[in-house]
Design a protein around this nucleic acid. Structure first.
Lengths: 368, 368
DNA sequence: ATCGGATTTGAAAGCGCTTACCAACTGACC
DNA sequence: GGTCAGTTGGTAAGCGCTTTCAAATCCGAT
């Protein structure tokens, strides 16, 4: 028996793999102890005499030993993983959410990995599989809050797949799925849109163009809802022809605005860009047409991405607590283990985070 | 023997873990085959009769079986991982590199995970450990190309640690370390800076302010080198007091520029922002002082981040192939397995990618 | 009916690690 | 000196999977 062990330690495992990777056997052999002792030194969860510990540590050092996460996970221990699925890393808005999630994960001693899905469902599945196979204990999905039924269905399937491995799912900025082990953290898009629309109405703008956002996204829908409610609160109503949906890009904002301005005198004095990028596009088109901001046209956006402050004049917009939502998502996702009386523990509760209005230079009273 | 197997399949493993996670034994039992057969169906690398395959697949379906990546990796197979260590996800410049790397990894059928280190060395180590422990086969490090000796030393240690597990290291936009299994892919910062400086000189600018960039970064150093070479090529030399280093942020650009303008008439007609963010800061300060761009002041940047086109006027800058560099990094990192005669196979070769000049509205001849 | 080769399947030995359980040893105390 | 509790370390049984080797089965050819 002893012999078998020794053989394995010296000869076997080293001989097979060409070079890299000392195993726990190698270390045990080098330090003249058993693998159990090495394991105990590594995990530090059991008393080991100082002398032995020193010997083992020296051996690990000498051999450049690195624990094998796979073996470790298999044997029951192992660091916990949390995965962050993000639609597009390049989008500063999503990136901020991801950052918040990572921060919180790190604070909980978890390691987090972010996977850029590029909105590609196949890739998304692929990453999800990876995470599942690695027995992640939480997956945070950021972006793409579509209400499209087919997509929702796919999500539901995923949620169940995850749940069946004991992995939780947190939807960030998406409506929550009513599936077990699934939570949703949202921004209060409706309220934010209400607030900023109200700001414009207060300034005296009568006719405001709402521009941008894919119509299928709940984000778009909620922002429009807030926009309309602001009108209703004043006993008026938004003009249906002044609500134009499409995309959330600068290009879309530019093209639409240009098209409208090329047609002649616009029937509005202010533009509510569905998000800051759209607003940036509107800036470009407006300036090309010689319109001054905010004298001739007030413009507002939504999200308060870094770009908003780089525009000239700086953009009045709605700040959404992106980093906070990322944090909340993992906090909530981990609540079942953290214990604590988070509001999230109750699966029926929807969490939504408030926004704040950032008034900057792009809004003013309309010329009478 | 048969009995032991059966027991394990039905009772044991299911009984222990409360609920989640069917194992290969469960599937084998359900389909009345051996685990070997299940494994073969899963991997599809060995002939299995259609009938058996169907039975196994059905069983997997029924049990919601998900392979355990850890067990798999332990046993020798398993999907390969590539890790991307990035300094800051929120930075669009880095994000683009990460995206390129992911794209290429995906193209190679690898899964890639990006870890946001926030420039925190501890976190960086932590992620590196994770990657190491998960036996990643390539780690791409993006950002922070510092020449600081201590940091270099740390990197060297890391490189060796990685190498000892058979993992390769690719430095993206950093000078390569001359360690085995380590490659570096760089931008040709010197050339890019040369080109854009030359553009300004050609327009007739005599005195150009170079502003921004941490002095310890090789990126900064190389850009300054190109800046100076452009002068030298014309038999002149850059004024030392017009080279101001510091940071790569918008805030830095704004504050420095403001301070300079507050002092009185500036001794230059153009500003070379160390990167686009700095340039954006310069825009702000210049506009506050009533300077028109480009009539009163020409401004150029570097990197061509999305912001560059959102500025007014749009910024003349140097486009660096960010996404391409990400791709190149993993291509190079995988070259040893891909085979192929990549130039990267030769460890002594430094790869550097060319840049292109994007001339936009922020530059013009100085007023005479 | 018989044989040989190809095809399909199963048994079992690990992969590197953790941990329950037990053995050996240390002192302290009677 | 003997006993008992407290330490310290070893043994070995897995964790869930792959893969080698060999046995079983099947098929057309003889």
């Amino acid at each position: 028996m002893m012999r078998a062990m020794a053989e394995r330690g010296t000869g076997r495992s080293r001989a097979r793999r060409d070079e890299p990777g000392a195993t726990i056997y190698d270390v045990a052999h080098e330090a003249r102890v058993s693998t159990a002792t090495v394991s105990r030194v590594v995990n530090g969860n059991y008393s080991v005499s100082a002398a032995t510990r020193a010997r083992v540590e020296e051996a690990m050092q000498k051999l450049g030993y690195v624990t094998n996460a796979h073996a470790r996970a298999l044997a029951g221990s192992g660091r916990q993983l949390i995965g962050i699925l993000i639609e597009e890393l390049g989008d500063p808005y999503f990136a901020a959410i991801a950052r918040g999630a990572q921060l919180e994960a790190t604070a909980h001693g978890r390691l987090s990995l972010v996977c850029n899905t590029q909105g590609n469902p196949e890739l998304e599945d692929s990453f999800l599989d990876l995470l599942l196979e690695h027995r992640a204990d939480l997956v945070v999905v950021v972006g793409g809050p579509t209400t499209d039924e087919r997509y929702q269905q796919t999500n539901r399937v995923r949620a169940r797949r995850l749940a069946s491995t004991g992995c939780r799912l947190a939807h960030c900025g998406r409506p929550p799925l009513d599936e077990p082990n699934t939570i949703g953290i949202e921004f209060d898009n409706e309220q934010g849109a209400f607030t900023i629309t109200d700001h414009l109405l207060t300034l005296g703008h009568d006719r405001i163009l709402f521009l941008g956002g894919p119509p299928a996204l709940s984000t778009t829908q909620n922002r429009i809802a807030g926009f309309e409610r602001a009108y209703r609160t004043r006993g008026r109503s938004a003009a249906p022809d002044l609500i134009v949906t499409g995309a959330f890009t600068q290009q879309f904002g530019y093209r639409q605005m240009k098209a409208i301005l090329d047609e002649g005198k616009p029937g509005f004095t202010a533009v509510f860009g569905g998000n800051d990028l759209v607003a940036a596009g509107v800036y470009l088109a407006a300036k090309e047409h010689g319109l001054r901001i905010p004298e001739d046209l007030s413009i507002v956006g939504y999200d308060d991405v870094p770009l908003a402050r780089a525009l000239d004049p700086q953009l009045t917009t709605v700040r959404v607590p992106t980093e906070a939502i990322g944090r909340e998502a993992v906090k909530a996702g981990l609540a079942h283990v953290t214990g604590g009386s988070d509001p999230y523990t109750d699966p029926d509760e929807r969490v939504s985070l408030g926004t704040s209005l950032m008034i900057r230079g792009s809004t003013a009273a309309p010329r009478s």
